[in-house]
């Protein structure tokens, strides 16, 4: 009789342990990962991003932090990007998002420079209160080396960028904007 109980408790513990192990595995399939998003040049781009993500049903948009332009996504990396290194995951996710958004949204590696080291540049601009024009202004600078995040709003008359001052500076940003036909508020274009 005592042997039977021992056997049952053994089995129970075994099953318990096994069960916990199994639960861990399920959690491991879909994990929440944080990524840097490009294309969030103003707050009203948030619903745009949500709408775009609906085109990618395998990826769930969990949270958006506008100030850092970071978002949390839940997806099964192994299934979506098999055998991909973290860098490759970023690249492939970027492709997916670009194709779904006509290249207005993208994914880039998380900013390596700590926040305190970044410098905020604010450039007053003049332009039409038109979302596509803001995209154009944003696209003038967001890919420049040293630009981590950027916003553009002609309604507010401001283009902002968090930059790594070792890699770029205000002058370079202004030049890029001018080249894209964005008018700076001091009158030069």
């Amino acid at each position: 009789m005592r042997n039977g109980l021992q056997g049952y408790s053994f089995a129970f513990v075994f099953l318990l342990v096994a069960g916990i192990g199994l639960a861990d595995e399920k959690l491991a399939e879909r994990s929440t990962l944080k990524h840097q998003v490009t294309g969030l040049f103003s707050k009203d781009r948030i619903p745009d991003l949500q709408k775009t993500m609906q085109k990618l049903p395998d990826i769930e948009l969990v949270k958006i932090d506008f100030d850092t332009s970071e978002a949390e996504f839940r997806y099964d990396a192994g299934k979506l990007f098999p055998n991909a290194t973290p860098d490759q995951i970023v690249e492939q996710f970027d492709n997916l998002l670009r194709n779904a958004s006509r290249h207005t949204f993208g994914i880039k590696p998380i900013c390596k420079t700590p926040r305190e080291k970044l410098m905020l540049v604010e450039i007053p601009v003049v332009g039409l209160d038109c979302k596509a024009c803001c995209l154009a202004a944003y696209e003038a600078i967001y890919k420049l080396e040293g630009v981590e995040r950027a916003t553009a709003s002609f309604k507010d008359g401001l283009v902002t960028a968090w930059i790594d001052s070792e890699k770029t500076d205000r002058t370079k940003l202004e030049a890029a904007l001018k080249q894209r036909n964005v008018t700076l508020k001091d009158g030069s274009q």
């Binding site: 006509r102 290249h103 207005t104 003049v126 332009g127 039409l128 209160d129 038109c130 979302k131 596509a132 024009c133 995209l135 154009a136 202004a137 696209e139 894209r180 036909n181 964005v182 008018t183």
Partner: peptide
């Protein structure tokens, strides 16, 4: 309302407008 007429400023970048679905 989402496409102000050009005045002293014109719209920038036709491609951006097309991609934004203007």
């Amino acid at each position: 309302p989402e496409f102000p007429p050009s005045g002293e400023q014109g719209h920038i970048d036709e491609g951006a407008h097309e991609r934004m679905g203007t």
